[in-house]
Design a protein around this nucleic acid. Structure first.
Lengths: 226, 226
DNA sequence: TACAGCGGAATTGCTAACGATTCTATTGTC
DNA sequence: GACAATAGAATCGTTAGCAATTCCGCTGTA
């Protein structure tokens, strides 16, 4: 009711509809637990109900929506406990990626990582949390890419959407950027130095510290819209 | 052409069709790279093309099929390199599960695990590889369940289908059951003793030894059918 | 013989429509 | 006034059908 039902441009294929609905969920335009009615989405995205239906099934598979038989689909609410589980999984998977990245990265790529570190450090120094948050995401992404572990990278890309809201809240916690920055710089240093064991260890520790931060969050997050 | 196109009982809902196609792929009834033609599957499973279409999309999402635009779906071939990647991911995820299982399991559950270990041991002793293979799968599954880490357990359940063929080939390698048994017993002992760190470590080592075994397999596996 | 051009068959992507199920608000009964 | 029964609206699950794209074998030319 509070969301703006602006008419989006015509999206023909299923993939586009999946993308559009996912973006809307991640952006908080559809709140957790909110019903996703096929006919409404069909109108909003100017696609047929069949296409929307298929898109919802895919999003269900991805963990962003749930659907009960004959009762339609809803935005899947992610509890704090589940956000912690997701972050624990990220810890071991990103640990694996950090290990591989440390082993694989070229000289140019190591340099690039160090530069991302410097950018983050500068952002925190001047209190620019949004830039810090963005660049730290980039660091994680880049390490995944450098790992060459496509299977792990793919799983991580999917998990990301489920926990974005908690990620965001953590980044806003007072004092968190300073702690996070320190951890990130440690990871970068180890990866850039080719220290596989250390890189994995520090990446795991970093995400376990995020687990700690999440567990200090309130049980339910504030709605982004409405 | 060589596969038996027997008429299966009517499958109404999408989930059943997904299950049926998945089983057929895993059983090797559809070979890697083979085209999955919507109309054929529609006939075979007595479901509408729309339902089959949705099922194929879900299987694509799961990594068992690939589909190119306007060119339909095919059984996704899994290279040896990818099987290794999958097993590396399993190593860290199952390591996490073993850690949690060691921390969580009740007395009855610890006993149950030890009994599974004894069953495995007896099977290997009498050279019953099929039973050993089955029970060892059960051990992995049970540890996942005991972990309480639903997110990791879910990802592992999905990954399983992608690498079954390689898993199977590894189990048939000469001398492999003896090695695998030893590793499994070690994991069980650590989990049953509540030694989290050790349980995770041994589970990772176990699956890294599977990685080694896979890398000694020939590049392409023999077809199971036709 | 090798190969580009072409036309029909096969197959996919999408949409509209129908029947089945679930939800909701009203009515009737105790 | 509380609560079960019921009718109508809303929504879902499935199927059939049409347009667009790709595949495949044929023909003609160098």
């Amino acid at each position: 009711m509070t969301t703006t039902p602006r008419q989006t441009e015509r999206l023909q294929d299923t993939a586009s509809v999946v993308h559009a609905i996912r973006e809307a969920i991640v952006a908080g335009e559809f709140n957790p637990g909110q019903r996703l009615i096929e006919s409404e989405l069909s109108q909003r995205f100017s696609a047929s109900r069949g296409t929307v239906r298929q898109a919802l099934a895919l999003l269900g598979n991805e963990g962003l929506a749930v659907s009960e038989a004959n009762r339609g689909a809803r935005v899947r609410p992610v509890s704090k406990a589940e956000a912690i589980e997701i972050t624990e999984v990220r810890a071991v998977l990103e640990g694996l990626c950090a290990r591989r990245a440390a082993a694989n990265a070229s000289a140019a790529e190591r340099k690039e990582l160090r530069e991302l570190g410097a950018t983050m450090q500068a952002a925190v120094k001047r209190g620019d949390i949004m830039t810090y948050s963005q660049v730290s995401q980039d660091v994680h992404l880049r390490i995944r890419e450098l790992s060459g572990q496509h299977t792990a990278a793919d799983l991580l890309n999917r998990l990301r959407f489920r926990s974005v809201r908690y990620q965001f809240s953590v980044a806003l916690l007072p004092g968190r950027p300073v702690v996070g920055l320190k951890e990130h710089l440690g990871v970068i240093k180890a990866v850039a130095a080719g220290q596989s064991d250390l890189a994995e260890h520090l990446m795991r520790e970093h995400l376990e510290s995020v687990v700690e931060a999440i567990s200090q969050l309130p049980e339910s997050l504030p709605a982004l819209h409405g």
